[in-house]
Amino acid sequence: MNLVVCLKQVFSTEAKIRISPDGRAVSDEGVEWVMSPYDEYALEEAIRIKEATGAGTIIAISIGPDRCTPMLRSALALGADRALHLKDPMFDSVDALGVARALAAAIRRNPCDMVLFGRMGVGMDQGVIPAMVAELLGAPMAGLVVKITVDAEKVRCVREIDGGSEVVEMALPAVVTAQKGLNEPRIANLKGIMAAKKKPLDLLTAADLGLAAPDLQDVRLVHESYELPAPRTAARLLQGDPADTARQLVQILRNEAKVI
């Protein structure tokens, strides 16, 4: 079974979030980049499927600048067979649909039985790209999957839904997004890390993918501005007898917080 796993590099969960001076982006200065945690489940599942079926290849794909290379090497160290790095200055200004078009173009050139994503890239939390890619490929999709069973022609997925679970069956090729609980990702073996150096990691530009400027300049979603939540202020302890503190509280709620 041939599998594609799409990986996104995101801020480490420990990163301190800062807004860029123009307020239109989140600053990535000094930030540590990691594989999105949900994508780790997707990759792990692909490796397990390959181990269970004993055949096929796993291709890891990411779109982004040079800093994506270590993440793709990690995917190779964990068990992916090939990595595709989609890198082009034209990708810098695309929206989610542009990313989906690039991914779909890369997947079409590497036909597979299943495409796996994390359920969303941690940080931006949009979670729209898997559905767009499925649409562009004309493939069925199941999101928020916590269990996958495959056979030659179809895949059965258990999906997490509100208050329970749902079982869906899809014809292959299909798109699946991984939810926490799907598996427990492994740690890279040292021999795997050494072997990763010898596995192919190919760079692909927009031209390599047959994408022209109009496909990528069709930006429909613009990030207007970002705001950090208001900092929590220290608690204030009101002193005095109950009647007095109640009076003070009303004053504060009315005059300072302006909520009553």
Binding site: P70, R73, S74, A77, I187, A188, N189, L190, I193, M194, K197
Partner: peptide, 14 residues
């Protein structure tokens, strides 16, 4: 090197 950092990462995660 990136490899050395990956080895360290495996050790730390373990």
């Amino acid at each position: 090197t990136p490899d050395q950092l990956d080895f360290a990462d495996t050790a730390r995660k373990f």
